[in-house]
């Protein structure tokens, strides 16, 4: 049985115990999602820990994570289910003469010939699961409709088999990098959570948690520099995962205090565009 959260605070503490530092908003929405049995739509810039949130909640509740990675062209047969066509053919050929047609027909459209894809798998699972539908903004608007039945009724309708209803309501996370506006129908079915870059204090905490050997002083400096860089007008602001990469690099290099030289040499870990690097170096006066 999946663990039931007691309070918002217990979600927050729980997530912290699996190394995910949630703020009040995140913990509050996760708590509500479980209580109300509603999916969470997590939106925000890339690399702010949206996918990690789903993984951490799965970790925390001891549930199995089922992941559906979205991409352009994703369709029913990859997201929901597919009939195992080859096996069906074999079945028909195997005893051509013995069975009547209606028997064969009933037989080849049964569970045995059904290939479950992530969505159906999450619905029909007997053990507790967390369903992660990653980067949902990548599918076309039409494909979104595939998700609607699952998200509101927790069931899948298969014409040949009937409706499969979930034995338990799984926790569902949808993530979006906001590359396009999602349909109203989808949003209406979800709780909405916007995850932004953390503020300086929280980012420092995250660095300290995820990079265990780092000194408090260095973590503080990293968080401050990253905050200053994010305020610049860049093509792509550094994400939390890039901050962590930077922290790990500095640690490996044995840096304990960042000055102009180290900052300049390692900026390429935080920023991935040459124009951004040049701009940040200039703004932070480390380009000499």
């Amino acid at each position: 049985m999946e663990k039931r959260f007691e309070s918002v605070q217990s979600v927050r503490d729980g997530l912290k115990s699996v190394n995910y530092l949630a703020d009040d908003g995140i913990a509050g929405v996760v708590f509500l999602a479980q209580r109300l049995g509603k999916p969470i739509l997590v939106e925000g810039p890339a690399g702010t820990g949206k996918t990690q949130l789903a993984k951490s909640v799965a970790d925390l509740t001891g549930a199995r994570l089922i992941r559906l990675q979205c991409y352009e062209g994703l369709d029913e047969s990859k997201a929901l289910y597919e009939w195992n066509y080859k096996k069906q053919l074999l079945r028909i050929q195997a005893d051509k003469n013995s069975d009547s047609w209606s028997e064969v027909h009933d037989d080849i459209f049964s569970d045995e010939f059904l290939l479950t894809r992530p969505l159906l798998e999450a619905i029909s699972a007997a053990d507790p699961v967390v369903l992660l539908i990653d980067e949902v903004d990548r599918v076309e608007v039409e494909t979104e409709a595939l998700l609607l039945e699952i998200l509101s009724e927790y069931q899948v309708s298969i014409p040949e088999l009937g409706t499969i209803t979930a034995k338990q309501i799984p926790m569902v996370f949808l993530t979006s990098n906001n590359t396009r506006e999602l349909s109203e129908a989808l949003k209406r079915r979800c709780l909405y959570l916007h995850v932004d870059y953390p503020d300086m204090e929280r980012e420092k905490e995250i660095v300290l948690t995820k990079v265990p050997d780092i000194s408090e002083n260095l973590a503080d400096q990293i968080a401050r520099i990253v905050r200053s860089i994010r305020q610049l007008d860049l093509k792509k602001a550094p994400s939390v995962s890039e901050t962590l990469d930077w922290a790990r690099t500095l640690l490996l290099l044995g840096v304990d205090h960042i000055d102009a030289k180290e900052a300049k040499e390692t900026l390429n870990i935080l920023l991935k565009y040459q124009t951004d690097i040049a701009k940040a170096a200039k703004e932070l006066s480390v380009d000499k």
Binding site: G25, G28, V29, L32, I40, L41, R188, L191, Y192, L193
Partner: peptide
């Protein structure tokens, strides 16, 4: 946050 998550999308 409860109101925000349900009303602001």
């Amino acid at each position: 946050y409860a109101l925000g998550a349900t009303l602001v999308k």
